[in-house]
Amino acid sequence: NALIKQAGLLKKIIDAIKDLIDEATLDCDNDGIYLQAMDSSHVSLVTFYLKKNLFEKYSCNRNLSLGINMTSIAKILKCGMSDDTLLLETNNPIDILSFKFESRRGHKLSQFQLRLMNLEMERLSIPDTEYSCIIEMMCSEFSKVCHDLATIGDSMTITCTKKNVTFDTTGDLGTGIVSLKQGVVGSENDENVYAASIKIVKPVSLSFSLRYLIYFTKASSLSNKVILHMGEEVPLMVEYKIFNTYEEEAGYLRYFLAPKVNE
């Protein structure tokens, strides 16, 4: 039983993953809702965690695994308005998930039911990793870099040093390189504008498929900033933090992408 103040937030989260994964289970317990799924080619992994404080009301008195088809849940979420409140409920036996939307002024109520699926999902264990480089930058900037470089090449090499982070690609038509300096560049409308904030233990340079990175940038509407976690011999983690309507941190959406290696 979970009440979310703005249905639009859940829609944004689902829209950010629905083109990457077909089906997934929502694992619910008393602390929140967790999802983990790989794309069909097993190159990337998506996880999200929606903490209890994302919801106005939240209760889950026993652990549940709800098998969801992503296209179907996206269709239902599209039926609500983004500032509707949304109540999610399951029945007993657990074979449907019900969605009750209520308009902000309370003049319209709508209810939809999603048939749940029996999914045998394998859970992967994601180890706690000490990353060599953690890069924080504006979502819009990361999105632009990925889209720009994808017009030239298929993969992008991210190279992080103490002073800057460089994104580069090579294609048939030529090459492209974008470099962002470490640190705050200036203030705009009382807000600091970062080139990139870099925390570094050791410089790293790794290559990734741009097609997947572009999928990940669909989460850009969830947060101002994106955090890239990089290390040798581990997948890239692209993290978007999720905030509730009181601007408190209330979960995350994380994408993991396996690197490309030169043979």
Binding site: M38, S41, H42, V43, S44, L45, E122, R123, L124, S125, I126, P127, S155, S207, S209, E233, V234, P235, F256, A258, P259, K260, V261, N262, E263
Partner: peptide
């Protein structure tokens, strides 16, 4: 030549 690695090469089943 570049080869794409896969997630199960890094994360094991629980």
């Amino acid at each position: 030549k570049e080869t794409q690695q896969e997630i199960p090469e890094f994360f094991t089943k629980m």
